[in-house]
Simulated scan of single mutants.
Amino acid sequence: MDVKDKVVVVTGGADGIGAALARRFAKASAAQVVVVDRNGEGATAVAKEIGGEAVALDVTDGEAMAAMVADIEARHGRIDLFVSNAGVGDGDPDRNNAASSPDAVWQRAWSVNVMAHVHAARAVTPGMAARGGGYILNTVSAAGLLSQIGGAVYSTTKHAAVGFAESLAITHGDQGIKVSILCPQGVDTAMLRQGGSGSPQSLDGVLTPDEVAESVIAGLAAENFLILPHAEVLTYLQRKAGDYDRWLGGMRRLRAKVMGTSAA
């Protein structure tokens, strides 16, 4: 997809990767960029900067998502590209216990990292199918393909997000609806900074949100399902698929290195 002259919606667009994507789509001459975020003030600031529109919205609210999509389609006639980018990340409170996060943390991550994609797809796929095509880009994470040490909630919900995107691509591909998932490792955002500069996902280098946005433009142009700003992720994924037990052993060794302990 070439985003020129396209109507684009970006959730989680007030900062980080979402804001960088909104700016890059505007630079690529999108017809309209709608910046969506729970932080309405932040969304408005980005929209004003790029000459777009802003919507204050909680992506976990399915009814509000459906109403927003209907309003945009009514005013602009279509949504060509929907970027479901909003996400949350929490580390394990006890890094020696993968099940240590309380239920409320699991539920919040499920609502944002998985169900927000479901709400978005439920709202946009009927119109896209009726028009004979459209594009959905879901921001996931390399953690959804691999794992994240010390982040069981994050890894689990991101794996689920990958599975849902695969289902979207399989079910709706013949309707002309393209699907991609964005799976970076370390990106210089507030989420990464919460984990500290020594977090495992930063070992292969930390990219800027603008660098990730450039990868997205290239990935959309090629219509690749996997958009991998960190090229190493494909190699790791192939190793995982090739020998799951060996990969798990390697991850245990990496965890020991990160934790400053010794692996068994």
Rank of each mutant, 00 (worst) to 15 (best):
S167G: 13
L145H: 01
Q185M: 15
V162M: 13
T125F: 09
I177C: 06
Q175S: 14
M128K: 07
A130I: 11
G144D: 10
V140Q: 08
L146Y: 01
L182D: 02
L146H: 03
A169Y: 01
V140Y: 02
L192N: 04
G195V: 11
A130G: 06
G134D: 04
A152L: 07
G134Q: 07
A165D: 03
G127Y: 13
G132S: 15
T171Y: 00
G173K: 12
A123V: 07
D174A: 15
G144F: 04
G132R: 14
I170P: 00
G151D: 10
G150C: 08
C183D: 04
S155C: 11
G134L: 06
Y135T: 05
V153R: 05
I177E: 00
K178M: 00
K158Q: 05
G195L: 14
H159V: 00
G134A: 07
A130V: 09
A129V: 09
G134R: 05
A123G: 06
S180E: 02
G132K: 14
A129L: 00
A123K: 05
A152P: 06
F164K: 09
V124R: 01
L137H: 06
L182V: 09
G173M: 13
Q185C: 06
S167D: 12
A169C: 08
R193C: 15
A123H: 11
V124L: 10
L146E: 06
L168W: 00
L182R: 07
G150A: 03
I170S: 09
F164V: 12
D188K: 15
M191E: 12
A123Y: 08
G127R: 03
Y154A: 00
S141V: 10
D188S: 14
D174G: 07
L192W: 08
T156G: 06
A123L: 10
L168M: 14
A121T: 13
S141Q: 14
A123P: 00
L146R: 08
R193M: 15
S180I: 11
V153W: 05
T171F: 02
Y135S: 05
E166A: 13
K178H: 14
Q194D: 01
V124H: 02
C183V: 13
G127P: 02
V153G: 05
V179D: 02
H172R: 04
A123M: 11
A129K: 14
V179I: 14
Q185P: 00
D174N: 13
C183N: 12
S180P: 06
V187K: 03
V179Q: 04
V179E: 03
G144N: 13
A160K: 07
S155T: 08
G133V: 06
A169V: 03
T139V: 15
V187A: 02
G196E: 10
Q185Y: 07
A142M: 07
P126I: 02
G150N: 12
L182Q: 10
G134N: 04
G144R: 03
H172F: 15
L137T: 01
